[in-house]
Design a protein around this nucleic acid. Structure first.
Lengths: 195, 195
DNA sequence: CCATCCTTCCTAGGGCTCCTAGGATAATAC
DNA sequence: GTATTATCCTAGGAGCCCTAGGAAGGATGG
């Protein structure tokens, strides 16, 4: 019987496709095997378990997204960079919901280290160079941006903005403007603003 | 054979407990049945399917969280209200991860309408009274706050802040300060959106 | 060219999940 | 006390994840 040509790489790629189609939680080893014309048990020669599959999709997505973000960031600084970066995230999440969801899979330290995760935070820090923030404010700002971007995309995808006529695009733009302002007026350390 | 005393209410309560213990995606009808000393098939006299269970946990959690937030908000305004509200969210998510995750389950319109979801957005709007924002800016601001809160909690829970020594608590405080500043300096509507 | 070895695939099967169908019994209403 | 309804049961189908053990493809080396 001819071999199906399954490799870990193709498996991860197909898993990412499948996750985008049916959602990460409905991405199953069985369905993946079916798409390769192979019994599900056969895939366990290539992967340890279903979780590894999710991890591989996560790693793949993190790299893809980092590449896109890097391209978007080229030649931009300050507010322009912020917006370009944020839009890249949101567009990617819309285009590849399964892959995007996978980026939130918790990775073990070694996998995380080998992944593009560091590139992501470094790009965020690069953006913040336009705002002159020292540590630990820079880390705090990175976390705020990450929270706002991911939170918005997450709420949007779960339908949280569905019950109000205001367009999500418009809210997104305004949020980015507001974040830009927050970064430019970054609060002084622990000054008790008594008002 | 004596009845186990299963009701939809107790089911939802037990499901919430279970979700907090094992995570929402590991909360299963079978395990729930086991805890009631009943066969899994028996539960289908009370609920239609597993999804309904998740929805019931979501509704329960939204109500609980709204109650807590309302209490925290009492007698506070402006920045104080913002912080009290945000802390309520984050504390609840830490205390009840399964319930919190359920609040992100997509509800059908009628269920959403009957849930405490509206109370949540109304509380956010109440907070924004301290910042004098007119529509649609108010909606945009509500979405920004929701995004930042949920995003932070989500990243924190999936371990996104694990690879840097800076404490998450500190970043959280600073993010709230920054959001307060963003609200007080809310951007003027874009003059031109042509680029 | 042939023997060897590793990889990839198979069948078989166990255990868990969700869920349906149909029947029995407990609690309640009349 | 009987009829009704709600709650529980057993039985079973289908899908999922995963393991064990075996067969065959494809490469390697004599």
């Amino acid at each position: 019987m001819a071999r199906a040509g399954v490799t870990v790489g193709r498996l991860a790629e197909a898993a990412a496709e499948l996750a985008d189609e049916v959602g990460l939680e409905n991405m199953t080893v069985s369905e993946l095997a079916r798409r390769f014309g192979v019994k599900d048990a056969s895939l366990y020669s290539h992967i340890r378990n279903a979780h590894e599959l999710r991890v591989r999709v996560a790693v793949l997505a993190l790299a893809e997204l980092a590449d896109r973000a890097a391209t978007a960031l080229a030649g931009r600084a300050g507010r322009d960079a912020l917006i370009a970066f944020a839009d890249t995230y949101r567009d990617y999440a819309e285009e590849h919901p399964g892959r995007y969801a996978a980026t939130r899979v918790t990775l073990d330290p070694e996998t995380a280290e080998a992944s593009a995760a560091r590139r992501h935070s470094e790009m965020m820090r690069a953006i913040l160079r336009g705002y002159a923030l020292a540590e630990p404010d820079q880390t705090d700002a990175v976390r705020m941006l990450g929270s706002a971007f991911h939170g918005f995309v997450s709420l949007e995808q779960t339908g949280g903005f569905r019950y109000h006529p205001r367009g999500a695009d418009d809210s997104w733009r305004r949020m980015l403007d507001a974040l830009d302002i927050a970064l430019r007026n970054w609060p002084a350390p622990a000054a008790d603003t008594s008002d």
